[in-house]
Amino acid sequence: MNKLDVTEAIFAIKKEKDLTWEAIAEAVGMTDVWVTSACLGMNSCTEEVADKLVSFLGLPDAAKAALMEYPTKTWDQAIPQDPLIYRLYEVVGVYGPTLKEVIQEKFGDGIMSAIDFSMSVEKEENPKGDRVVLTLNGKFLPYKSW
């Protein structure tokens, strides 16, 4: 099995068993965001996490190797068509330069790591309409001069 085969199998099992990402994450001892990313093929699992996913979901044994395989993190560079993904793309397009300015003013010349990184998605109930709370937490990596 390759990563795409495993992702398709996971989605089928998730639907069949009426599972949530949160339930899957709890079963393997990881966060819902990270587990979802790994199940979509964008992160590699440790052997322990892969074993737990295979066992909990009832995946074929061949899925373990694909879950542990290092991913090639590529995505379509075209403007996304899915409305939710497009809005995130829009946030970066509109606020990216602002975030860069503010981060560099507070930290110096550098970047936020997407490797030493965590992310969470929370729901905040609000009488005017529920709010999506995204938290991106990445280590600051200063540029070096040599």
Rank of each mutant, 00 (worst) to 15 (best):
V28Y: 00
V92C: 02
E47K: 15
L19R: 02
P97Q: 05
D51C: 02
W146F: 12
A50H: 06
K73E: 12
G96Y: 03
T7A: 14
T36I: 00
L67H: 08
V91N: 05
P127S: 06
L67Q: 06
L136P: 03
T36H: 11
P142Q: 12
E22Q: 04
S118D: 13
K100D: 07
N2T: 10
S113Q: 14
T98N: 07
D5P: 01
L84M: 11
D5C: 02
I24H: 01
I115G: 01
E122A: 15
A27M: 03
A25H: 03
I111H: 06
A23N: 08
V94H: 05
I10L: 15
A38M: 14
W34P: 01
S120R: 14
C39T: 01
P142I: 02
G138M: 09
G138Y: 07
I79S: 03
G41H: 07
E124N: 10
M42K: 15
P83G: 04
D61N: 14
I24S: 01
S37M: 09
T135Q: 10
V54G: 04
Y70P: 00
D18E: 14
A12W: 03
V33M: 09
A78K: 11
P142G: 11
A9Y: 10
I111A: 10
Y70F: 04
E8Y: 04
L57E: 06
I115A: 07
G138P: 04
G129V: 08
C45P: 02
F56T: 09
F56A: 08
N43S: 11
D5E: 13
G138K: 06
L141D: 00
A38V: 13
G110D: 08
A23T: 10
W75R: 10
